[in-house]
Nucleic acid binder design. Structure first.
Lengths: 351, 351
DNA sequence: GAGTGTGGCTGAAGCGCTTCAGACCGTCCA
DNA sequence: TGGACGGTCTGAAGCGCTTCAGCCACACTC
């Protein structure tokens, strides 16, 4: 039983009686041959069950692969489980949609980003890096391959397109709004300053040595208004549970804070819960503010006052930059997106 | 200025003074050469800035690409925006994580799935199809390429691995629980029966001709208990907004239903809102039941009674099947996962 | 000393496609 | 009539890698 080999360009060319180049042209440059011939080629291809030029071989010959890569800080699964990341990806995806490019998710390990070997195998024409530490080995791997790169938020690298957000300004804005309402005793709940799984009060050393710009900026924005000595609790991840624990810890101070500044909405949701746990009310007893404005913020109980960072816009813009680089464009100046305060019902004057 | 070409295997081979095959072996089969030589090769490679074998060329030669493809019904962005889909992908991703495979998201158009051309360009060793209509052209494209495929939920195809869920049983279970509570007047809110953007009451023709098995099964499960003549509203997408509109329409009947059976949690969230809009209470005035048990169901107001389908498990299992096919395994028998009813506070006896 | 391994390395044949410099031919213009 | 030209199609040189059959030298075994 001689199993028929999968048809290739040559098979088709042979069957039609033309050169391989012509068949290739039939697929890629219809203007290079007569319509009639092209028609004949396509028909033969169909009858032979030829699925069109093999993507890998085509990529090898053309040196591009119609795919944009996305390097994750964490495992693949974070892309779908982390609300803020999902929205960024959604934005990116919506830009890339319509260009018939696939999106290749490159899994990372912990907060350190992808292994260089993984990057080395990923097939993409351009890669987007999101919130990786400056020293991530994956970055070097991308450069070594000579792929263009666009960076979101972090890290700051020469010769890459970049889009970032005014985290400091946003945090400052949030804290100021609380200050203006009359709050003077604050607590801050932040996510990781270091990729070491630490949960607990933030020490000055941990703060100043953080490799995560976003964390640093948000914290500085909060502390700039609230005061550098504001009790601050670090959570290893941006999760509701850890936020709840952190807020609980902060609320045990005497006198307890009247406002909780959270580095993310997810942490803020936990804080909301912690306040309820104590039998207190938001915002009557304690104000809570978040950061990101994920969709759930609007449906929280009470609806969460938060800093809206244009997550989708960030992704969309990164997508545009990626597409531009794909077409040989230059990185250009970094884009900085504005943030705004979304006032809902989790903040009010103290007492 | 003669810009140095990017180094290749040959460059390294030349520099070390060995054959190209040996350098290749240094990367892929360390046991084929002496440790000392391998060492020397790696050092030279590093000093030359050689990033390792080019993934595309390697894929061409080996015919595999260390990537699993995922065909979406909709645009890329649905992967991140649709809660249930996200969880499935999360499950899939968590299986694939640790195998150093990338996940290639293949964008679809509307409910029809990816364009065949897009599939033809995607570089993956195996592709997972999720909830595509039976006649999606993308499926043919995958087969034409001879790629192994695993199908989630739909469609039913010969010679593919498959994982599915007992949608009928789940829906029946949900409806029965309401029946047992004493409900006799139902309304059903479903998502699309046809990929034509229709919103409105379901006609028997639309129902019987649907190409979406999942929709069909859930509906049949509901109607089996509630009665075939139960008022049923079709929403073009599974969105909160459309669910709200649909529920509002159903609630305008006289006498109005005492229980709303929704084909998804997202629709149920809309229904909850619709009931509130009318100044009525859930579950005192109207019971609402969902399907999927997405995380938000637990935090809905009130917490939503719903059918839990093991979304993550579905994804995880699909991932395992994909990995098995990747290693040359046979598809095997379809796996059917069980569902269960999660009783929360959105259901109660009528009145 | 002939036979048998065996670890270490190489030559060359692909993998399936794109692309570029022509070849060929009929047209058109002067 | 001749030359320039545009439209079609082809030959052949890659793209960068893997892999398999072997070759060689050396160590063993009987």
């Amino acid at each position: 039983m001689d199993r028929p080999r999968k048809p290739t360009l040559d098979t088709v060319a042979g069957a039609v009686g033309v050169s391989r180049a012509t068949v290739s042209n039939a697929y890629n440059r219809p203007d290079q041959l007569s319509a009639a011939l092209r028609e004949r080629i396509m028909e033969t291809a169909a009858s032979l069950g030829y699925p069109g030029p093999d993507p890998v071989a085509r990529s090898l010959a053309t040196r591009h692969s119609a795919a944009v890569g996305f390097m994750l800080g964490q495992g693949l699964s974070a892309s779908f489980a982390d609300a803020a990341l999902s929205i960024v990806l959604d934005g990116l995806a919506s830009t890339v949609d319509g260009h018939d490019h696939c999106l290749v998710l490159i899994p990372g390990r912990d907060k350190g980003g992808p292994r260089p070997e993984t990057v080395a195998r990923a097939q993409a024409d351009v890669v987007v890096a999101y919130s990786l530490p400056d020293d991530a080995p994956a970055l070097a791997a991308v450069r070594a391959r000579g792929l263009p790169m666009v960076v979101i938020d972090q890290p700051v690298l020469p010769d890459t397109a970049r889009v970032e957000v005014d985290d400091f300004g946003g945090a400052r804005l949030a804290a100021s709004s609380l200050w203006d309402l009359g709050h003077r005793r604050f607590g801050v709940v932040t996510f990781a300053l270091h990729p070491d799984g630490h949960n607990g009060p933030v020490t000055p050393e941990r703060l100043t040595s953080t490799p995560f710009r976003v964390t640093w900026d948000r914290l500085q924005g909060y502390l700039d208004v609230a005061g550098a000595d504001t009790p601050t609790w670090e959570c290893a991840r941006s999760s509701r549970e850890l936020g709840r624990a952190g807020a609980r810890a902060l609320m045990s101070a005497e006198p307890r804070p009247t406002a909780l500044l959270c580095a993310s909405d997810e942490l803020a949701f936990g804080a909301l819960q912690a306040v309820r746990d104590l039998g207190l009310r938001v915002p009557a007893d304690v104000s809570v503010i978040g950061f990101d404005d994920v969709p759930a913020a609007e449906h929280a109980d009470p609806p969460l006052t938060t800093v809206r960072q244009p997550l989708a816009e960030k992704g969309r813009h990164a997508g545009e930059l990626a597409l531009r680089l794909l077409n040989g464009g230059r990185p250009g100046e970094p884009t900085r997106l504005a943030v705004s305060l979304v006032s809902r019902d989790s903040t009010a004057p103290p007492e």
